[in-house]
Design a protein around this nucleic acid. Sequence first.
DNA 1: GATCGCCTCCATCATGTGATGGAATCATCG
DNA 2: CGATGATTCCATCACATGATGGAGGCGATC
Lengths: 212, 212
Amino acid sequence: METRLEKARKDPESMKARILAVARRIFGEYGFHGTTTRMIAQDVGIDISTLHYHWGEKKDLYEAVILDINTDLRRSLIDVETIIHGRPLAERMAIAIDVMTDYLFAHPEVSNLILLRYFGKTRHESSLDFKVPEFTGDIARSMGLTNDPKNIPPRAMMEVLTVMNALHNFVSGENFFRPMTGLQREDYILAAKETLKLILIPAFVERDRMRS
Amino acid sequence: METRLEKARKDPESMKARILAVARRIFGEYGFHGTTTRMIAQDVGIDISTLHYHWGEKKDLYEAVILDINTDLRRSLIDVETIIHGRPLAERMAIAIDVMTDYLFAHPEVSNLILLRYFGKTRHESSLDFKVPEFTGDIARSMGLTNDPKNIPPRAMMEVLTVMNALHNFVSGENFFRPMTGLQREDYILAAKETLKLILIPAFVERDRMRS
DNA sequence: GATCGCCTCCATCATGTGATGGAATCATCG
DNA sequence: CGATGATTCCATCACATGATGGAGGCGATC
């Protein structure tokens, strides 16, 4: 049985899908408490009642958004993994950083929502089991940090988080960081990629060489 | 002429200072929109009117909090710089990471508020000139990335941001990341330090060696 | 065309929240 | 003591926001 979320994703012209797309953007910009249902409805061009008709409570819509971006992010990670499979570590990481950075800059609300979830509390607690642990497991295996993605050592988890968060930071912080640098958007993205590769790769490559 | 903020900091028992301290914590946890003036007043144990009497509008109190954590962070950075002055780069970075991580874990609202400011919009725009550029300038010089802290190359700025944000991420994301790892608080802090040193230092040290 | 069900909007409600006026309390000083 | 100013709290307001009921419209099916 397909969920409402899956159904909405199928037809991007449906009202449910249009609301979800706008909700992703607005929630991503302003966070849960900073977003009002009226802001979303107005951006879609509909009445608030219509929004409630399709998605119920604000919290339900928000959780649908979270599930939605998780699905997207997971798919992107899988795509990347098929690309980099079999290559040497330094190359794997460089490609992964390039591809994932491009993806996240094209969908900044993904990074926004993930980081806001990490760092900000919601007054009402959510019953969502966030899929981060699974992600980190996949990435840890992909980076050669573990062979058993179900049982990741804490240190490997911390290393994966450091890498992923470094990406999210540049994407989500663009509004703040880019004016500081005075760079145009394309140059900023390029600088982010190069900086990430410069800082993140050597430590892993060096350790990899030591072990073999 | 001393500002209201400076006066409040002098006497930590004054009502103004007590409100400010609580406001730091609550704003840090829930962000601007997620925090209500009633939450703060209740935690201090006073009426909302008393809060408004001392600090005026909610936004004014929030901006006072931002200025306050900036002052604190800046002072900590200066302290670190005097400690690490004159040592070789690898040692400088290791000490800086240790000391700053300890400081931030002792005052997590600093990291929380900084990251929420980076990544989340506020519906009302703030007229605060955030002091990030100056920070990055100081740190960039301290890391040997530039000689002129007033005019930092974009790449150096990005590198400093990567390092600082990596610290903030572990501190501010503790509620999310620590359950994932299953670590106790002290072990989590230790793992954060070691991971940060492991990943962040080699790239800079290697480049430093290449250049000399 | 009549009926039915789905969708949308207008009007409205209940509550949460920021903010204020004014009375009461307290400390200080002559 | 009495006066003055500073501080605190109670009662209340105005508005934003989440949410709902019900009327109207629109298309499909018979």
